[in-house]
Design a protein around this nucleic acid. Structure first.
Lengths: 327, 327
DNA sequence: TTGAAAGCGATACCAT
DNA sequence: ATGGTATCGCTTTCAA
């Protein structure tokens, strides 16, 4: 379902305004742009007509005529705004892009309304960064054919620069952490929507346990928020089969930890991402470094926009680290 | 310092591409848009030329010719991305605007490079929401003359709809909280950059203390982040003049609380905003409701964009509430 | 399948 | 200070 808004629905142009105000179109343009070369009375007259018709100038037409742009924009695309780590990466990319005089804006990806790309084309972006997701075939084709550069964070696609972290290794770190804390049968809480990251983390986790594992703590699945984590935590506690919990994300882990503490339990819990608020909760986590991600992403997209070939074109894989807070 | 990028620097158009590829401009357009009415060979030929010249189609020109837009965008503007509460309001507005089929994007305000508005005009936004700041005179004039609606959150301007919370009352609540917890000489930590919100909170705080206050706990000032809060907390502890702390924001308060806990002190601390991560820290705070803010902001801007007159045009003042976590 | 020509709605220049 | 005109770069229609 696309919401195409046709311009001709009550579509007034500068011409109509000029006629109605009994002036030339050049004069209307001057009123629009607060030009000094216009008398206050004519300006007021024109503005009245503008208000009356709720006229809005057509920005694309203005830009075409102006032939100069005053800023470059890169869009950072995410599928779900509730992922906290996203904001930390966002801040980091934003700061790094600033040095290149490129501005960043964030957008949510939505496939339902036609192609995403056709929607954002209107924004006239110079480049795109996809976070934790990849564009579909159509959007990829559209970007390629229009020569709009894009890169990926935490996902991958052939012939596309990407920055990921070693999720398999991160899963292993989590396993080691729980084992060190005495778990004999740790469980894993999947992301409800399965994805490649989740699979890798889980595989690493399983492999990390393999040598030492006695019993299977099982798996659960939760949506990517605290409430879902809390409910899952309650379930884990009542099931009594697991003696340690590794969660796909910090949001889930915080929810689980809350449930654990509410029950007065000491069940070890560890999350993934290393968002800021894990500190307050005293939650151990497998941490990614948003600063490095942002720096690398900014440098790469800036190079692509400039038309130069970046030195490194192979995907970049960063190594996550354990933050042990004793949770 | 404006970074005007003139289009004519290595400015290739569809015409050049057409000539070089020995085809008509219509055919190039078909290649750009993945049209079915083009043979694979000519498409490939054209794409080669496009790659060779790093040609990028001019989006404004395309839109002008297309005469149809597929999505409306509203920009949410903030001066400083490090304010955590901003993200919660953002999520809330985003969700509410979705119902109106309006998409939200976030942007940082920067006055340094000419007028902000001239920069974002290229994005062709249907409306703007300013968070915790107000546009300057020039930008205001530009938006008004181009008939682009805008509203404010947590600031105010004549003839402009705004949503604020009762900062004076919030300050009073904080005073009462500290007094209830035995403070006799509480201090206030200002925002380093003074602003209207800060003044109101402080005034309410002072008035709340007035009847009961014995000694003046003094005031401090900190930048809007945890580190600054931490340093300020250390200073408060070493000064030993205050026996309770009210902070302008949760970020500062979290920093202060960390310092207090690191020192093994029991000094009462309270923040402002009610960001999610205050829960993890067990920090008491004066809480605003991002859900309500988002709902109201979305409804109002949507009405303005639609050209209808919203029912309520007077500024909306919400009442903050105390969240007591015993900090 | 392809080429040529007619707009799209502003801006800016040149007269007046 | 104001009006008219050429023009911006693309999409789209109409012929071929």
């Amino acid at each position: 379902m696309t919401y195409h808004i046709f311009m001709d629905e009550s579509h007034i142009t500068i011409k109509e305004i000029a006629k109605e105000a009994h002036v030339g179109i050049g004069t209307v343009s001057r009123a629009l742009n607060n030009s000094p070369n216009i008398s206050d009375v004519t300006k007021a007259k024109i503005q009245a007509v503008i208000k009356a018709h709720n006229y809005k100038p057509n920005a694309p037409a203005a830009h075409l005529a102006r032939k100069t742009i005053s800023a470059r924009y890169v869009g950072l695309i995410v599928r779900n705004f509730r992922i906290r780590f996203f904001y930390e990466v966002f801040e980091s990319i934003h700061a790094a892009l600033k040095k290149h005089h490129i501005r960043l804006l964030i957008l949510e990806y939505s496939e339902n309304a036609g192609t995403f790309f056709s929607q954002i084309m209107e924004l006239n972006l110079s480049g795109l960064i996809f976070f934790t997701m990849r564009p579909n075939r159509k959007d990829t084709a559209a970007m390629r054919s229009r020569n709009i550069p894009f890169i990926l964070i935490d996902s991958s696609l052939p012939h596309t620069y990407s920055i990921t972290n070693d999720n398999y290794y991160g899963g292993k770190l989590a396993a080691e952490y729980l084992l060190r804390n005495g778990s004999q049968a740790p469980c894993y809480v999947h992301s409800k929507k399965s994805n490649q990251l989740d699979t890798l983390r889980y595989t690493g986790f399983r492999d990390g346990l393999k040598t030492a594992l006695h019993t299977d703590g099982g798996t659960y699945a939760a949506a990517l928020d605290e409430n879902a984590g809390y409910k899952t935590g309650k379930k884990i506690l009542s099931d009594r089969t697991a003696d340690g919990v590794f969660c796909f994300s910090d949001e889930i882990a915080i929810g689980v930890l809350k449930a654990v503490r509410d029950a007065g339990s000491e069940l070890p819990v560890i999350g993934y991402d290393g968002t800021r608020d894990t500190e307050g909760w005293g939650l151990s986590t497998i941490s990614q470094n948003p600063y490095i991600i942002g720096k690398k992403a900014a440098a790469h997209i800036a190079a692509l926009i400039a038309g130069s070939t970046p030195e490194q074109t192979a995907p970049l894989v960063l190594t996550p680290v354990l933050i042990d807070r004793g949770s």
